Computed example of a mutant assay.
Amino acid sequence: MKYIYLAILMFISPLTLSAEAFNIKASAEQVSPLLPGLTVPNSQVLNPQGKALSTDSLFAKKPTVLVVYRGGWCPFCSRQLMGLQQITSKLEALGLQVVAISPEKPSVLKTSKLGAGYQLLSDIDLSFSQKMGLAFYLEDKTAQIYRDKLGVNFVGIDGKTQVALPVPAVFLIDTRAMVHFQYTNPNYKVRLSNDVLLSAAQQMIKDTQAL
């Protein structure tokens, strides 16, 4: 069955998206992120120029720090991504690449001030977030607040208005697309610290080198 939903966007013209809802939970607390040891299903994401990229080919280049975020409109996401720049050079020195993916449309990423030193990519239909086990529907009251204060657009789903987002998450993924570390928190205000991320990245590199 096809559902229609709209990824949250800010300060852009109205956009309606049609996509298949195959793994969107009713709340952030119900999501089931991919666990360490599991392989990330291949998916298509878009670069800021709108070109489709395969996640398998993306991860095959280098071990990856993957950040899934809600959008640049979210102050907690912006703070996380800007803070990540402080350790990007250390992560790259370990041989990792940093990739950040959100539902924002490519043109928004193209003009974003975030992501200096790493890649910003678009999961505009939330298919990747669904495969990662992160997608959920906002409850109506919160969705109404987002619409009124952020200019969020909605379309009807079976007579209702809904919006889907990913729970913010950080993954460490090797070149075979296998997850080595995962952090998610239904409370979008709580984010992984740089110190913990750097320590986990160092451990992943040791583990993969020992194989």
Rank of each mutant, 00 (worst) to 15 (best):
M1D: 11
K2P: 05
K2Q: 05
Y3Q: 11
L9W: 07
M10T: 14
L15F: 13
L17F: 08
A21N: 12
F22L: 02
N23A: 15
A26H: 12
S27V: 05
A28K: 11
A28I: 02
E29N: 09
V31T: 15
P33T: 06
P33D: 04
L34P: 00
G37P: 08
P41M: 05
N42C: 00
N42P: 04
S43A: 15
Q44P: 00
L46N: 01
N47D: 15
Q49P: 01
G50M: 07
K51A: 14
T55P: 10
T55E: 08
D56S: 14
L58V: 02
A60G: 08
L66P: 03
V67W: 05
Y69R: 05
R70Y: 06
G72Q: 11
W73D: 01
W73H: 02
P75W: 09
F76C: 04
Q80A: 13
Q80R: 07
M82W: 11
G83R: 13
L84N: 12
Q85G: 15
Q85H: 13
I87S: 07
I87G: 06
T88N: 13
S89I: 09
S89H: 15
L96V: 07
V98R: 10
V99A: 05
S102D: 00
P103G: 10
K105I: 13
K105P: 01
P106M: 06
P106W: 05
T111K: 15
S112V: 04
S112I: 02
K113N: 13
K113A: 13
L114P: 08
G115S: 09
G115I: 04
A116I: 14
G117Y: 11
Y118E: 12
L120S: 07
L120Q: 08
L121I: 01
D123C: 04
I124A: 10
F128T: 01
Q130A: 04
M132L: 15
F136S: 04
D140S: 15
T142A: 14
T142D: 11
A143I: 11
Y146T: 02
Y146G: 08
Y146S: 06
K149W: 07
N153A: 10
V155D: 10
V155P: 00
V155K: 06
G159T: 05
G159R: 09
K160G: 10
Q162T: 14
V163F: 12
A164S: 15
A164G: 12
V170L: 05
V170D: 00
V170W: 00
F171L: 01
L172T: 03
L172G: 01
D174M: 06
M178Y: 01
H180K: 09
F181D: 00
Q182F: 01
Q182N: 14
Y183K: 06
Y183V: 02
T184E: 03
T184N: 03
P186W: 06
K189S: 12
K189V: 08
K189L: 13
V190D: 13
S193K: 03
N194W: 07
D195S: 14
D195F: 08
V196R: 12
V196M: 10
L197Y: 07
A200L: 07
A201P: 04
Q202Y: 03
M204A: 07
Q209T: 15
A210C: 06
L211P: 04
